Computed example of a mutant assay.
Amino acid sequence: MQTKIAIGLLTLGLSWAHLSADVSEMIFYPQADFSEGIFHFNYQGAKNKNYGFMFDRGFDSNRIVYVRPEEHSIEKLKDGSVKLSFANTDRYSYVQRAYKDDFLVSEENGVYKILLSGGDCKGSPDCVTAENILTVNVPKGYGVRKYQGLDQDLKPLKNPIWQAKGNTYTLTARDVKGACVMMEIEKLKPGQTITPMVVAANEIKPLSAPEPTPTNVPVLTPPVAEVKPVAVVPVSKITAPAIITPTPIVKTEPKVEKPIAVAAKPIIEKPLATTPAPVAYFRNFQLFDNRIVALNEAGKTRLNEWAKVFKVSGNKSIIINSYTDDIPPQRLKHLYATNEIISEARGKVVAEYLATQGIDPSIITVNGMGDADPIAPNTTEEGRSKNRRIEFILN
């Protein structure tokens, strides 16, 4: 799970619940291959007030490439988070670089699933934004399969307002604490077109929901073949067969073939294949889709290979230690409040998948280690990436 960006709109000493015309806008411009992108944030509120943006711990302020007005400040707080502050102004904006891991949830067979945040009001528990507007400019050569408006806790918005013009999609959410956009975007093949589908709150179905059983369907009964009665011939009318004298059987001795001597070929014993030792650990991005606790297809392939190695290794137990970096959960905090909880959840996902590959679940132990035992400094993104990992201990 990579560092999140552009997370909260923060009011300094003012609750937005008392404002009547505050508008937050976010425009996202991804590159054609979804390797990077640009976020453009704009805000308009009441005059002569103090406002600001909050970023997660570990956020690199060098990602912010443009800020207006010039009278602003960027500071790192004691908890490691970054604050971009504005004083006595009613409108401001900034432009920020976005990396792939900031918005890409999954990528499979040319289908990209992205998650974008338009901000989260943090001035007070009941603060809201009058209008939260999120716009996505989909690159040429791609089509939108599905799109949905979510709140700051990734739950479906009750009254999302969508407008689509060409490859530009805009969500407007009114009187909400925060808003997000979830999209499935597919790279088009020559001549291919896609009819986009907006997913409403009442259209969400559980992933495991069974298909409804059809009712009032006539049952077709196959026709029964007609059985005709067999005519019975009286015994008195049956003519006895003629008596045939059998031809005498002459016994002949079978010829015995002499065996032909065949030189025996020497048996060459093949050396036993050596089994490579399992890898010490997997980084989380090698196994999981970003920002969700679910294996990606590449992760399943890696675990399939590892399971084959484990089956022939002769070990009697496996311990799965799941780790995070030192940044607390953000997007998934409503489901996993701490790093220990989210790390244990990911470890259990790995254990459950290994069980489907034939490994006895009774010999698997899962430990959610949270941000304990870092193997690299948490002060850099590369270090945090190494610390987000799954380790295997064999006995």
Rank of each mutant, 00 (worst) to 15 (best):
H334M: 12
A261V: 15
A337D: 10
P254R: 13
F310C: 07
V256W: 03
K316C: 01
A264S: 10
Q286M: 13
A294T: 06
G347T: 03
Y323I: 00
E344S: 04
N290I: 08
M369L: 14
M369Y: 06
G299D: 04
N296L: 06
V349K: 01
K270D: 11
K333P: 07
G368K: 02
P276I: 02
F285Q: 03
F285V: 03
G358F: 05
T324R: 13
F282P: 02
A264V: 11
Q357Y: 02
Y281M: 01
N321Q: 10
D325F: 06
R331Y: 11
R331C: 00
D325V: 09
I319K: 14
F288A: 02
T365E: 15
N315H: 14
G370L: 12
P328V: 14
A263T: 13
Y323D: 00
A355E: 05
M369D: 07
T274C: 10
A263Q: 06
A345S: 06
E305I: 07
T365V: 13
A355R: 02
G358N: 06
G370P: 09
E344Q: 07
K251S: 14
K300T: 00
I359F: 03
E257G: 08
A307E: 07
V279F: 04
V256C: 06
A261Q: 12
A280E: 10
K308H: 09
D373N: 15
K348G: 01
E340H: 10
V349Y: 00
A345E: 04
A294M: 08
L354C: 00
A345R: 01
N304F: 05
D289P: 03
K255P: 03
R346D: 04
R302G: 04
P329S: 07
A261P: 04
D360W: 01
T252P: 14
N284M: 05
V366G: 01
P361A: 10
K316R: 15
V350F: 08
A372Q: 15
L335N: 08
P278Q: 06
K258V: 12
P266R: 11
W306N: 12
D289A: 05
V349P: 01
E253R: 12
G358L: 05
T252L: 15
V350D: 03
E352S: 14
A345T: 02
G368I: 01
L295F: 01
I320Y: 04
A264N: 05
N339W: 01
